[in-house]
Design a protein around this nucleic acid. Structure first.
Lengths: 205, 186
DNA sequence: GCTTTAAAAAGTAATCT
DNA sequence: AGATTACTTTTGAAAGC
C-alpha cells in the first residue's frame, strides 16, 4: 500500500511537471512570437482541455503545446502561420499541422478558416506600409474572396498578393521579394495570386 | 446539365488476396524479373505489372495486395498475371483465390466552382476539415456510404474509402443534394 | 505509430534553364 | 519567367518493428 501511495505521488508529480513544462513552453513561444497574454491564456486552456481529454497520449507534449498556441492565435484573431509557429517550436511544421487538426477535431474547437485580412496589419507594419495600403489590401481581399477566388488558397499567400497589389496602387511599391519574405511565401505564389486578384478586380497596371 | 454521376472516374482500386501458400521471398526476388525486395525497408516484395498497370505487394504469408488498377476487372487481370508468374516459378497457387476489393478511389466533377468557405460553414465546421494552409481540399466524411470526399474550389472532387463503384455514385448524389439544399451549388 | 504501393484533386515550393 | 519535379491530403490491405 505504501508502494502504491508513493507511485501515485510520483505520477502526480510527473504529470504536474509535464503540465508546467507545457505551459512554460507556451509562454516561451508566445513571447518569441510577440503575442498578447490573452493568447497564452487561451492556449493554456486548450492544452489543459487536451490533457483532460487524454489527447496527448501518443503525441509529444511540445507538439500539443505548439498546436494549442497555433489554435489560440487563430481563435484570438491574430493568426500566425504554421511556418512562423514552427520557427519558435522544436516541432516540425507538418507535425504541428496534423496535431492541430487532431485536437481541433477532438475538442470540437470549430475553427473557421483563417481570413487573409487578419494578416494585413502585421505584414503591412513590418513592411512599413501606410494605413491607406492596408485599407486597399483589405478591399482587394474582400472583393476577390466574394467572387470565390479564395477557395483552397493559403491565407498568407492570398494576403501577400493583395498587399503587393495595394502597394503598387498606392504608389508605395514593395517588391514581390520583400512581401514574400515577411509573409514567408514564394514570389511565385504572390505572382499567381496577384494576377488572379487584379483580373477579378478589373485593375490593370 | 450533365449529371455529376456521369463524370465519375475510377482512378485506383486496392484489393487483397492470397495464394494459400507461404513464400520464400528471397528466392522469389531472385527469380522474378523486376521484383523489388528490401525486407529491411518493407516486409513485402513489390512486383509491377505493365498491362494493366498495377503494383502487387507480395508477402511471406502468401497474401498479396494489388493497387494502382483502374477498375475491378483490371485488378483481376493484374492478379491473374501475378498468379501465373508465381506458377512459372513452380509455386503452388490456389485455383481461384478470393480477391477482396478494399478501397476504390474515384474522381468526379460537380461542374461549377465551389465556395469552400461557405460550404465549410454550411456543412458544419464540426463535420468537415478545411485547412487551406495545409491542403486546398475540404475533407468531408460521409456515414452512408462510408467514404471520404475531398472537395475542391474547381468543383472537382475525390471520393475514397468505398468498396464498390456504387459507393461513389451514392456519395456524389448525397453531396450534390446536400449542397443544393444549402444553396451552395449554383 | 512507422515503413511501401498507386491514384486523383489543386496549391505551394524547390530547382533548373 | 516558365518548366519540372515533388510534396501536402484521403483511403485500404499486407507484416514487422
Amino acid at each position: 500500500r505504501l508502494r502504491k501511495w508513493q507511485e501515485r505521488i510520483r505520477t502526480k508529480d510527473a504529470g504536474e511537471r509535464n503540465l508546467q513544462f507545457a505551459l512554460s513552453e507556451i509562454d516561451r513561444m508566445a513571447s518569441a512570437l510577440g503575442v498578447p497574454r490573452s493568447v497564452r491564456e487561451v492556449a493554456s486552456v486548450i492544452y489543459r482541455r487536451a490533457l483532460k481529454e487524454d489527447l496527448i497520449r501518443g503525441r509529444s507534449i511540445e507538439g500539443v503545446a505548439t498546436s494549442a498556441l497555433y489554435a489560440a492565435c487563430r481563435k484570438e484573431g491574430i493568426p500566425r502561420s504554421l511556418e512562423e509557429i514552427s520557427e519558435v517550436s522544436r516541432v516540425e511544421r507538418k507535425e504541428i499541422g496534423r496535431t492541430y487538426r487532431y485536437i481541433s477535431q477532438e475538442l470540437g474547437l470549430e475553427m473557421r478558416p483563417v481570413d487573409p485580412k487578419k494578416y494585413v496589419p502585421r505584414f503591412c507594419s513590418e513592411l512599413e506600409l501606410s494605413e491607406e495600403v492596408q485599407t486597399k489590401a483589405n478591399e482587394i481581399i474582400e472583393k476577390t474572396a466574394e467572387e470565390g477566388l479564395l477557395s483552397g488558397k493559403s491565407p498568407t499567400g492570398y494576403a501577400a498578393a493583395a498587399i503587393y497589389a495595394a502597394s503598387l496602387l498606392c504608389n508605395e511599391k514593395k517588391t514581390q521579394r520583400e512581401v514574400a519574405d515577411v509573409a514567408q511565401v514564394t514570389e511565385v505564389t504572390i505572382r499567381n495570386r496577384y494576377q488572379e486578384q487584379i483580373e477579378a478586380m478589373g485593375i490593370h497596371g | 446539365m450533365t449529371d455529376p454521376k456521369d463524370t465519375i472516374n475510377i482512378e485506383n482500386v486496392v484489393a487483397s488476396t492470397g495464394i494459400g501458400q507461404e513464400l520464400d521471398l528471397q528466392s522469389v526476388a531472385m527469380d522474378l524479373e523486376g521484383a523489388d525486395y528490401d525486407p529491411e525497408q518493407f516486409p513485402g516484395l513489390v512486383y509491377r505489372t505493365q498491362n494493366p498497370k498495377s503494383a502487387a505487394l507480395i508477402f511471406r504469408s502468401g497474401k498479396i495486395v494489388c493497387t494502382g488498377a483502374k477498375s475491378t476487372d483490371d485488378v483481376h487481370e493484374s492478379l491473374r498475371i501475378v498468379f501465373d508468374k508465381l506458377r512459372e516459378l513452380q509455386i503452388q497457387v490456389n485455383e481461384d483465390p478470393e480477391i477482396v476489393v478494399q478501397n476504390i478511389v474515384t474522381s468526379a466533377d460537380l461542374g461549377r466552382n465551389l465556395n469552400l468557405n461557405a460550404i465549410a460553414i454550411g456543412l458544419g465546421l464540426e463535420n468537415i476539415e478545411y485547412e487551406p494552409e495545409q491542403f486546398p481540399g475540404l475533407v468531408y466524411r460521409l456515414d452512408d456510404p462510408e467514404v471520404v470526399a475531398l472537395l475542391f474550389g474547381s468543383g472537382k472532387l475525390v471520393i475514397t474509402g468505398g468498396k464498390k463503384p456504387k459507393d461513389a455514385e451514392h456519395a456524389v448524389d448525397k453531396i450534390v443534394s446536400r449542397l443544393e439544399d444549402l444553396g451552395l451549388l449554383e
